Simulated scan of single mutants.
Amino acid sequence: MLIRFLIVALAILNLGVALWWMTPRPAPAAAPDVRETGVATLELLPMDAVGAGAPAVPAPTGAAATPAAATPAPTPATAPDAARAAATAAATPAAAVSAPQPSPQQQCASFGPFPSREQAQAAQAALRADLSRSQLREVQPKAASYRVLTAPAASREEAQAMARRIVEAGFSDYFIIAQGEDANAVALGQYRNREGAERRLATLVAAGFPARIVGNGVEAAASWWLDVAHADTASAADLHKRSGAAQRQALECARLR
């Protein structure tokens, strides 16, 4: 009896399921198509188009379609970069052409002595084409030696009294001149150059003893020298020979005006 009951129950259940499937039902509501603005979606093409090798083209939503395989255009150079490149290209050849050439190194010398200004000017004219600068320089006559003397005293006694005061002040190397136009003057040294005589004179004047410098011996005559500046492309020996001067001396170019 139990087996028969189970068979009947199973048959009823199968009949109920068949009736449920056969009963018409409303179609389920389709899910809303949610799309984000500006995002491309994939659309399926018909099979014949796919078989022909046509690519699937995404269709953007809410915006105009843009080819996916489009190559971006090259970005043009900005205005400052373009201007800088043009200026560099234009300036490079000009800079190479207008680059200053190094000037020849200058040398300076003095030619002389010339006994007159006219002879020095003639030498200057003969060398002018090879000179960048030149000047004439006069050299004053020089004495063979220099003496430092006090003013002549009125008598021998006054000269001796002056000598004693000079010695008491700490000076030595003196003698009293006995004759000549400087008689009764006190001589306080003889020097071969004027610089030494001027130093002796300064110490005497500072101590309160008026004195003077007197040239002694034969004086050399005045002379003229030609100071020149020339490029190293010209030979100093050749310029010396062409000047006709007896001597050539080195000269600092800073002294040449």
Rank of each mutant, 00 (worst) to 15 (best):
C108E: 02
T61A: 11
L239W: 02
A49F: 14
L251I: 01
T66N: 03
T66V: 09
F111R: 01
W20F: 13
F209P: 05
E157G: 03
G112M: 03
A169G: 12
V39Y: 08
A254W: 05
V205S: 07
L204N: 04
N184E: 07
T71I: 08
A151S: 11
A169V: 09
L127Y: 04
R164P: 01
E195H: 14
Y146F: 12
A90N: 15
T41E: 13
R200V: 02
E36Y: 01
V228W: 00
R128W: 02
L13H: 12
K241R: 11
V50Y: 13
G112Y: 00
V17L: 15
A236Y: 01
G51Q: 14
L149N: 09
L201V: 01
A91P: 07
A129H: 09
A83C: 06
Y174I: 14
E195C: 08
P113K: 00
E181N: 08
A64M: 08
A18I: 15
E168F: 07
T41C: 13
L131E: 06
P113N: 01
F171E: 03
R199G: 11
L13N: 12
V39I: 15
L131Y: 03
P72C: 06
L13E: 13
G51S: 14
A29M: 10
D182V: 06
V8D: 07
A144E: 03
Q190C: 05
T150E: 01
A90Y: 12
P26C: 10
A40W: 02
P93I: 11
V205F: 00
P32Q: 06
Q105R: 09
P58N: 14
T78M: 07
A151M: 09
E198D: 11
G215W: 02
A163K: 12
G217N: 02
E43V: 15
E118A: 09
S145Q: 07
E157L: 11
P60R: 09
G170C: 09
R84E: 12
P104C: 00
S243P: 05
A125E: 11
P28I: 10
A9I: 14
Q106I: 01
A163R: 13
S223L: 10
A245T: 03
C253V: 02
V50W: 15
L201A: 02
L251Q: 05
F111C: 01
Q105F: 00
L42G: 12
A120K: 01
Y174T: 13
S155R: 06
M22A: 14
A18T: 14
A153D: 04
T203A: 07
A109V: 00
A163V: 13
A143T: 00
V34S: 04
T78L: 13
A161P: 05
A11N: 10
A231M: 02
R25T: 15
Q190E: 13
A49P: 10
V186H: 09
A154F: 07
L136F: 04
Y191M: 13
E168W: 07
A126R: 08
A202I: 01
A151Y: 09
L226R: 04
M22C: 06
